[in-house]
Amino acid sequence: MPLLKVDDLRTYFHTREGVVRAVDGVSFQVEPGETLGIVGESGSGKSVTNLTLMGLVPMPPGRVESGTARFNGVDLLRCSRAEHRAIRGKRISMIFQDPMTALNPYMRVGRQIVEPLLIHERCSGKEARERAVRALETVGIQDAPRRLLDYPHQFSGGMRQRVMIAMALITRPQLLIADEPTTALDVTVQAQILELIKQIQSEMGMAVILVTHDLGVIAEVCDRVLVMYAGRIVEAATTRKLFQRPGHPYTRALMASLPAARKKGEALYSIKGMPPDLTQPINGCPFAPRCEVAVPRCQSAAIALREFREGHETACIREQEGELP
C-alpha cells in the first residue's frame, strides 16, 4: 500500500489578473521508504503541489479545486485543520529552499528544534533537549549542547540547513518533503547536504519527496522521478529509465540543457520560447508551442499520462504511439 496517494490534484490561485492554474490535475504516489524526485522549471507547480499537501498554500488566493491525497488513510485535502496539524511536523515534515530565512531569527535554534516534540509528543523539556542534542549530532553539528543556545544568524548557510533537517526529522516522520533543499547553498555544501539526506533516509527508512530543478540532484538520490511542466506531470519513470531514454521532448530538452551534456566550448542548449501563461486554458500538450517535434495533433488531442514501457509513463502522444526515435 502506498504511503501517499495523490489523485487529480488541482490548486488554482484566484488573482486579479485571472485564475492561475498552478497545479492542474496531478496524480502520483509515494511508497514507504522510497525517494521520489519532482523536477521542473520555476512555476511548473512542483512547489505548490507539496505546499498543498502540507496545507501551507495561502487561501485565499489559493484554492484546492479537486483531488484527494490519502496519507495513511487520511485525506489531507479534506481533513480538519486540527487533524492536518497533527500530521504536519509529526508524520510529514518539510524543509525549504532558503535556510537563511526559514529559521526564526528571534529564537534560539534549540527552542525551534524541540518545538515539534513539545507539541506533538508532549515530551518533557529535559527529554526534548536530549533528543535535540542527538538530532544535531546526527546531522553533523559539532558541540551540539552549546549550539542549541545559539541564534540562527550565528550559523552558516549549510549549517542552518542541517539545523532545518534536524528539526524536520526530530519526530521521525514517515515522509520528508524537501523543497529545493540545496538550491541556495554553495556547490560543495550541496553535495554534503544531499549525502546527509540519503544517509539519514537509509537509517530511518522514511520516504522522501525531493523537489528540484536540477536533474543532477535527481540522478544522485532519487528512485523515481516526476517531470512537471505547466502544472501537470508530463513524465513519470524510475530514475534509471528516465536517464536511459527520456520519453517526453520536454525532458529531453532539459537533459540537453545540462552543461555536462555538451562538449567543452560548444554553445549551451536552451529551450526556445517561454512557459505558457497559466491563466489561459491550455488545449492539448502544454509544451507543444516550444516543442521541436510537435505536430498539429499535439495542440488538439487530449493528453494523459500513459505507460509506454514497463515503469515509464509519458504524456507525449507521439512517444506513446512510438513515433519518436
Binding site: 504536519r88 515534515s93 532558503d98 530565512t101 526564526n104
Partner: peptide
Amino acid sequence: AQDFIRTARAKGLSETRVILRHALRG
C-alpha cells in the same frame, strides 16, 4: 509573509502559537 512563519506552520503549530511565539516578536 516571511519564510520562517511557513516553517513554523509546517511544524504543525497552531495558528495562535505561530502568532504568539513566532510572529509577534518581529
